[in-house]
């Protein structure tokens, strides 16, 4: 069944007709030509497709496009302002926090949302003080909170310091 939906992606509105089975990831990549979120598993198991949906990180392969109707969606492309890269993106380059780059936009989006989660006091499994208003992002917290984003090139030892540089300036 086809339905018409409105998607708001990286600040632009798109009206399009989609099969109700289409995922948000496929709508972004195949219909809107936004290749920033990547398809690594299509199963919510790798994080390559991570986007912000109303400010929170989601794996867009597990969201149906119709469920994205009206939501504010931001991809790694939208985190940059024109040629001006987001600080996390600049830190990833400076620390060479990737090799092939296929997991990278998902890592970047995930890192941005993860820092907000810590700022809002959301604990993780390694958080000592569950009542803290703000969780301090030490390396262990960063590694734990970024573990939903797999990197087969295994740039983890560079990803953690790249994020730390932004999280603990």
């Amino acid at each position: 069944m086809d339905v018409e939906i409105l998607l708001r992606v990286d600040g632009k509105e798109h009206r399009l007709t989609v099969d109700t089975r289409t995922t948000l990831l496929d709508a972004l990549r195949e219909r809107l030509g936004n290749t920033s979120p990547k398809k690594g598993c299509d199963h919510g198991q790798c994080g390559a497709c991570t986007v912000l949906m109303n400010g929170q990180r989601v794996t867009s392969c597990l969201v149906l496009a119709v469920a994205g109707e009206g939501a504010e969606i931001v991809t790694a492309e939208g985190l940059a302002e024109g040629d001006e890269l987001h600080p996390v993106q600049r830190a990833f380059i400076a620390h060479d926090a990737f090799q092939c780059g296929y997991c990278t936009p998902g890592q970047v989006v995930s890192a941005v949302a993860m820092m907000r989660e810590a700022q809002a006091g959301w604990p993780s499994v390694v958080t000592e003080d569950l009542d803290a208003d703000v969780v301090v992002l030490d390396d262990r917290e960063i590694a734990e909170r970024m573990s939903g984003n797999l990197c087969r090139c295994a740039a983890y030892a560079n990803i953690v310091p790249a994020i730390a540089e932004v999280a603990r300036p």
Binding site: T35, K38, Q89, I93, G101, T104, P105
Partner: peptide, 21 residues
């Protein structure tokens, strides 16, 4: 040197096989 393809890759603008328009 920083990776030449870095700026493209961090924003997801490097073109992988399935992404050619």
């Amino acid at each position: 040197l920083d990776r030449k393809d870095g700026p493209l890759k961090v924003r997801g603008a490097a073109t992988y096989a399935g992404e050619w328009p």
